[in-house]
Design a protein around this nucleic acid. Structure first.
Lengths: 154, 154
DNA sequence: TTATTTGCAAATGTTTTGCACACAT
DNA sequence: ATGTGTGCAAAACATTTGCAAATAA
């Protein structure tokens, strides 16, 4: 893994700041539920699903309904605070804080589910060139490698 | 589009041959339903969903249940006769005949839904190298560019 | 005060599955 | 004869939505 997890985690103060930015930038209202969701989402050490978040909050006795979690996660993705990763059609989406990180792609271990991140500027460039050749305007992209991670591959 | 559709379509005789190969290679049984599904799937001019196939067959008075369509499509994908494309987690999967075509990636128009295919050997190579750097063994991959196709982008 | 937000339960949409019957080998 | 395959309806499952009650501004 090229990234150190803690390197990208925010402290409580930064999260409060981010929360305010999130709320005001979208003309939303401050609610206890949204604050709890944001606080928890931005302190996650790895990719998490809506359901993960739901159970974590429930365990911490700070219940928020699933509907609100889904609604808030969507807002956070639209506002570019969270990145959304789709592993497979029948599987729950995963989320991760963006927080100034550059775009990256994912390798997904089919055995243990581990998600390894990587970036390759040349690939990005070549994608863009392929798009231009087809007069296609890229708004977003997703590159996923499925296989076996180092430990699962012996 | 770099590919000519008709260039890759099979004639009736070739489909029969492919059907036999499909059945025998998997120790399956010849059934009217499977033949109908294979015939229709391999004469499709573009990507299709399970539901598309279901309605086409129904319209042609050759009813096959949805369950059987899903089961057969899965068999065809596993046997490497069809390629499966996931546009989004909550959307139906798309299928396309493989039939000797090389692997390709997709650009998906968010406005009209058009799917443009492309290949880039250098990208493939760089993906592999990125995987090796992480001692990750790639079994399959998916690269999708989302955006606006030439006509939708004016 | 009033437009948002929430929680609940019900709906959604695709795909899968249990089961009894039908059929290919 | 016997193991497969089929159709139906129900289940699965993540996510979305309608609605009435609660709450932020």
């Amino acid at each position: 893994m090229s990234q150190n997890d803690s390197e990208h985690r925010l402290n409580s103060e930064q999260i409060d700041e981010l929360f305010d930015r999130f709320i005001s930038s979208n003309k939303l209202k401050h609610t206890a539920q949204r604050l709890k969701i944001v606080k928890r989402a931005f302190s996650m050490k790895k990719h998490f699903s809506a359901d993960d978040l739901y159970h974590l909050l429930k365990r911490e006795k700070t219940d928020v309904s699933k509907a609100t979690i889904y609604r808030t996660l969507k807002l956070l993705v639209d506002a570019n605070f969270l990145d959304e990763l789709e592993i497979g059609t029948r599987q729950a989406k995963f989320y991760e804080p963006i927080h100034g990180r550059e775009h990256h792609d994912h390798m997904i271990c089919l055995k243990c589910g581990r998600i390894v991140e990587f970036t390759d500027q040349t690939i990005e460039k070549l994608q863009q060139q392929a798009a231009e050749r087809n007069r296609f305007r890229v708004l977003s992209h997703s590159l996923k490698l499925f296989g076996l991670c180092a430990s699962c591959n012996q």
